[in-house]
């Protein structure tokens, strides 16, 4: 299973699309690792600095409809290449979410109230996150505050995370 712990990058915007996550001009890369420098290169977000803001981050917390647009699995691959295996959002575009689990990565949905609370408590501060897959609890902490957030994913999505992705799962089941 992949690692779902680490420092958090907050992206305070809805509808962040796959062209912003990884622009189409980089889809000519065959290797997944080659996508590493281009993650979020075209993100339209005031104050976002790709180099500084991505450094050492392992988790993204964002708003509504993350990953909308293209089917490109290069979006999760570019996240993975940057050591980011967990995205938390109000909800995801269908293909992006499926791609995350298909790669053995984790896409967790919280209500807009909880996402709003997390942004109020932690955004703008150095924030760490830990995921307990057994208890299904995400713990978020800064110097000033620590809070646990229970989460749920479907049994099927959990099976994909545990199997390391859809190919391994499908190959042993079909």
């Amino acid at each position: 299973m992949k690692n779902f712990n680490g420092k958090v990058l907050f992206l305070d915007r809805a509808d962040i699309n796959t062209d912003e996550i990884i622009p189409a001009k980089y889809l000519t890369e065959i290797s997944r690792e080659a996508l590493e420098p281009y993650l979020l290169e075209d993100l339209e977000l005031d104050g976002f600095n790709q180099g500084m803001d991505l450094a050492n981050k392992s988790v993204i917390i964002t708003k509504d409809n993350f990953g909308c647009g293209s089917s490109r699995e290069h979006a999760p691959w570019a996240l993975d290449a940057n050591g980011i295996n967990l995205v938390i959002a109000e909800n995801f575009a269908r293909i992006f979410k499926q791609n995350m689990f298909n790669c053995g990565m984790l896409a967790v949905e919280f209500s807009s109230e909880i996402i709003g609370k997390i942004f109020r408590l932690f955004a703008g501060r150095s924030t760490d996150l830990e995921t307990d897959m057994k208890r299904m609890i995400i713990t978020i902490k800064s110097d000033e505050h620590q809070e646990e957030f229970p989460f749920s994913i479907s049994d099927f999505d959990l099976a994909l995370v545990e199997a390391g992705g859809w190919l391994s799962y499908a190959d042993s089941n079909y």
């Binding site: 089917s71 490109r72 699995e73 999760p76 499926q98 791609n99 992705g165 859809w166 190919l167 499908a170």
Partner: peptide
């Protein structure tokens, strides 16, 4: 679909 779904 993404590349993994396509692959399967």
């Amino acid at each position: 679909v993404g590349t993994t779904d396509l692959e399967v």
